[in-house]
Nucleic acid binder design. Structure first.
Lengths: 127, 127
DNA sequence: CTGCATCCTATAGGATACTG
DNA sequence: CAGTATCCTATAGGATGCAG
């Protein structure tokens, strides 16, 4: 997994070290798909194809990779059901609940941001 | 700025559209430095070099680029003071406060995550 | 001090085709 | 259905050096 060492040299006073946790978090969670993927799974277990449709334009290769990584980080559990044909689902682990707040904030912000942009478009068109 | 169109085709029922805002947010905020940078500025106005030291290993080119983008998105204001030599500071705009919650959550999560990893290391070493 | 210009590489992620 | 295998490209971001 790798967390970068404690290399940050900050002015002793200040707040400094405060950003290290942010960088730590980003190290695991950043990328185009991880958060949206977890967001998608917040609605309950999903199958591979469901996720693919859900996310809109992710390719199987990438989806597969992202799921594997999320499994390694213990955000996601892969379950195999011995139906015919076999059914496989992905679902969030209890641990991943710790990420849900981030996603909620991101979601809220995304909504506001989109509105803001639309407003700005209007007012600049009016000029 | 560009927000991707409403191309997500989700099963009509489900929750689906819920992830679009997440993707919107990520479109603007993702990358290695934007969030840490805003996090750094949460402690008050900073100068170019301060930020560079603060963030640990960002190159001037990248820092410069990130700052420009944050300025465009109205998260950051660049202020020039006519001292000799000129002093330039970067500070967060009121709008960027809307992102602070995200950063706080990220920070909290980063701290927990690091602790978790350390614990796991110990227990797996014990095996 | 505050950057910009140039060059360079690693990696994320897309396209396409194929398998059990 | 649930992926894997290959190939390919765009882009983020690092290294270095220079400039006002």
């Amino acid at each position: 997994m790798e967390i970068e060492g404690d290399k940050i040299k900050h002015t002793p006073e200040a707040c400094a070290g405060n950003i290290r946790p942010v960088k730590d978090a980003l190290y695991v969670l950043s990328g185009k798909w991880k958060l949206p993927l977890i967001g998608a799974l917040m609605d309950g277990p999903q199958r591979f194809n469901e996720l693919q449709r859900f996310l809109g334009d992710i390719t199987p290769k990438v989806l597969s990779k992202e799921l594997r990584e999320l499994e390694l980080n213990e955000f996601v559990e892969r379950k195999v059901f011995s139906t015919v044909p076999v059914t496989i689902t992905y679902e969030l682990t209890p641990y991943s609940q710790s990420v849900e707040k981030i996603i909620d904030e991101l979601r809220k912000w995304g909504i506001e941001h989109r509105e803001r942009i639309i407003k700005n478009r209007k007012s600049s068109t009016a000029a």
